[in-house]
């Protein structure tokens, strides 16, 4: 079974070919890092996975079914910026998805439903290390906290695929290391497939199970418009990383996870 299937996908904007002939199978619970030079079409590819853009040719399948032509709750997203809503508090942001899902008319919940959602949201806020900041607005948070919030908000929907576009690109190294630990833990605990665009190869190697490089193979100026980027490298990490399990080289990367019982039920810890 594959979580994501990309079949001979091309993307063109007018005359410009951005991506050509991308074919890819991604296993469920994989953590794919997408790397490549600036402007090669990584964000474009992510947008197609999200449903925000349609491939010019080819098709994309999610769990064997064609991708719906618009974004939906089965695919979560975290951007480098603008991922959280400035008019909602931390708690409001994390509750937002479940509230929208529960109340199609008002987008607000009351009473028991609200209490249930709020409880889940508070657990999630604790999970990403934001407890104490529940009543703050995003503009009052640091960059690292905003990205933690964005992860929490996206994970509340239990997406099958989580798409990340340079989510930690604007963070300084110390904060980034912290949030990598969090990212790894979430990926281990939550049953989802992750596709992350990054410019940081270290980040790619320390988080991903598989690294895919997009690149233009023809770079002469007169060829730039007519030839797009394609997959030039596809590296599966060795020893293989498997969600919910540790490789022998990662003894230290899962703090506080030394209970073997967890491995049997990798998804049961966050909710």
């Amino acid at each position: 079974m594959t979580a994501l299937t990309v079949e001979r996908v091309w993307k063109e904007y007018g005359d410009q070919i951005v991506l050509e002939n991308i074919s890819l199978e991604v296993a469920p619970r994989a953590f794919v890092a997408l790397v490549g030079p600036s402007g090669c079409g990584k964000t474009t590819f992510l947008r197609m996975l999200l449903g925000q853009e349609q491939p010019t040719r080819g098709r994309i399948l999610l769990d064997g079914a064609p991708l719906p032509p618009e974004p939906g709750p089965d695919r979560g997203v975290v951007y480098q910026r603008y991922s959280v809503f400035p008019h909602l508090t931390v708690l409001g942001n994390v509750m937002f998805g479940p509230e929208l899902r529960a109340s199609r008319r008002l987008g607000r919940t009351f009473g028991a439903t609200r209490r249930r959602i709020e409880e889940q949201a508070r657990t999630m806020i604790g999970e990403v290390g934001l407890e104490g900041a529940e009543t703050k607005y995003p503009a009052q948070l640091s960059g690292g906290m905003q990205q933690r919030l964005a992860l929490a908000q996206a994970l509340m929907m239990q997406p099958r695929v989580l798409l990340l576009d340079e989510p930690f690109g604007a963070l300084d190294p110390g904060i980034r290391a912290d949030i990598h630990v969090l990212m790894k833990r979430l990926w281990n605990e939550v049953p989802m497939t992750v596709v992350m665009v990054t410019h940081d190869l270290r980040e790619a190697f320390s988080l991903a199970t598989r690294i895919i490089a997009f690149e233009r193979t023809r770079t002469r100026t007169e060829e730039l418009e007519r030839y797009g980027a394609t997959i030039t490298k596809d590296i599966v990490l060795w020893p293989p990383r498997v969600a919910g399990q540790r490789t022998m080289f990662e003894i230290d990367t899962l703090p506080g996870r030394d209970d073997p019982a967890l491995f049997a039920a990798p998804s049961g810890t966050t909710r």
Binding site: L50, Q52, E70, P71, G72, P73, R75, G76, V77, Y79, R81, Y82, S83, V84, F85, P86, H87, F96, G97, L100, R101, R104, L106, G107, R108, Q153, A154, M157, P159
Partner: peptide, 27 residues
């Protein structure tokens, strides 16, 4: 409003109506 916010709301299961009511209107 950044397009990202609208897309984000869609991934949080918002309909057009809910995007208008809860994302765009308050902002």
């Amino acid at each position: 409003l950044p397009r990202e916010q609208i897309v984000k709301a869609e991934t949080l299961s918002a309909s057009t109506w809910l995007i208008g009511l809860r994302v765009v209107l308050p902002q």
